[in-house]
Design a binder for these strands. Structure first.
Length: 351
DNA sequence: AACGGCTTCAACCGCCCGGAA
DNA sequence: TTTCCGGGCGGTTGAAGCCGT
């Protein structure tokens, strides 16, 4: 039998993506959802390999991506996480929901690596005034302490999160639970107000591209014969934007979920000692901190992309989200902690 | 204005892992 | 059990932009 290869390498285009390709890809994912990347080039006619499509989506077009201008908190977070996890960029990215692993990796390589090196020199006795990051460096570089502290905080905060979830799911909150559960059987922790900007950011990305592209196209109109129909593309973008705004409509279940989502997010927010990195999303659990919740959000995002009203058939859908399963599954939590447990530690005074 | 070195970051490459056949 | 493939990940590359001379 055997499946056909991922891409036949013949006629596969490489290099920068054009706005037209972006729109085709976004339109396709808008309709079918992310995943099954192998089918994307075939179904869209894009002369790209499936990997390239996936990367373009995950690193650039995916909704909710924040680009450039890393905040101090994000910087500190990355420094901490890099010290803790090493170059596991995907793991680090899962704690910074608006950043991609590629973005973080690039930022580390171009900015933070130098900065940390510089600060290590400073900490070693140079007179240069780097007080802003000196403490940061000290905690990040003293890994024996920080790892232990992190682990303890994780354990405590996971416990807090579990308590919050148990409280939310306890019988006397059954009504909340039932309201929490959207038609597809998944509990939505996502504040509805957040979805719209998330999708919008994708549109904005493309709009920005188009803006630049329009200018470039005037310069080199003859060089690219396949991208002359600006109106159709604009229409396409408008169509996408329209679909996005439609998907952002507040549903009763989502509105009902807000209070519990906030309650849960407070537990999660403490996970790393400071609040959500984007103040506009400070209570958005979907911006929260675990790889598991990341997976959950990806799934939820997919569901929304596929069909905002999808999943009316409860019987065919899992009753617990990945996040819930993780929170309820002690072993899973232990495994996760074991992953983080890089060495023994003696510190005891964190809590 | 022209040139060369430096920096940034999107995209590619190659490896690995898990699941399906 | 083995093989194959899709997807994910980290490392690397190279084009484009920036900056100093």
């Amino acid at each position: 039998m055997g499946r056909p290869p991922c891409c036949d390498k013949i006629g596969i285009k490489k290099g920068p993506w054009t706005p037209e390709e972006d729109i085709i890809l976004v339109s396709y994912i808008q309709e079918h959802g992310p995943g099954n990347w192998r089918a994307v080039p075939t179904n869209t006619g894009l002369l790209r390999c499936s990997k390239s499509c996936r990367l373009r989506w995950t690193n650039y077009l995916r909704p909710g991506i924040k680009r450039g201008n890393f905040t101090d908190q994000e910087e500190k977070m990355i420094i901490h996480l890099q010290a803790l996890l090493g170059n596991r960029w995907a793991a680090i990215a899962s704690y910074l929901r608006q950043r991609t692993d590629n973005d973080i990796k690039n930022y580390w390589n171009t900015h933070l690596k130098k900065k940390v090196k510089k600060l290590q020199l400073a900490a070693a006795g140079c007179s240069e005034d780097n007080s802003q990051y000196r403490d940061e460096l000290a905690s990040a570089s003293s890994q024996q302490i920080s790892r232990g502290q992190w682990e303890r905080r994780l354990q405590t905060d996971i416990h807090m999160a579990k308590q919050a979830l148990c409280a939310a799911l306890s019988p006397d909150k059954a009504s909340i639970l039932s309201e929490l559960k959207p038609a597809n059987g998944f509990i939505s922790y996502t504040k509805p107000a957040v979805q719209a900007p998330a999708y919008a950011s994708s549109t904005e990305n493309i709009a920005k591209l188009l803006k630049g592209w329009t200018r470039n196209a005037q310069k080199s109109a003859s060089s690219n014969s396949g991208v002359t129909d600006q109106n159709s593309i604009n229409n396409n973008v408008n169509h996408i934007a329209g679909a996005e705004s439609a998907s952002s409509e507040e549903t009763p279940s989502k509105v009902a979920s807000n209070s519990t989502a906030i309650e849960l997010s407070e537990a999660f927010e403490s996970l790393f000692g400071f609040e959500s990195f984007d103040s506009s999303n400070s209570t958005d659990l979907s911006q929260s901190v675990t790889p598991e919740s990341s997976a959950f959000q990806d799934y939820e995002s997919k569901q929304l992309l596929l069909d905002p009203s999808a999943g009316a058939d409860d019987d065919q859908m899992p009753q617990l989200s990945l996040l819930e399963k993780w929170l309820f599954d002690d072993q899973g939590g232990k495994d996760y902690l074991n992953d983080l447990k890089l060495d023994d530690h003696e510190d005891t005074d964190m809590f």
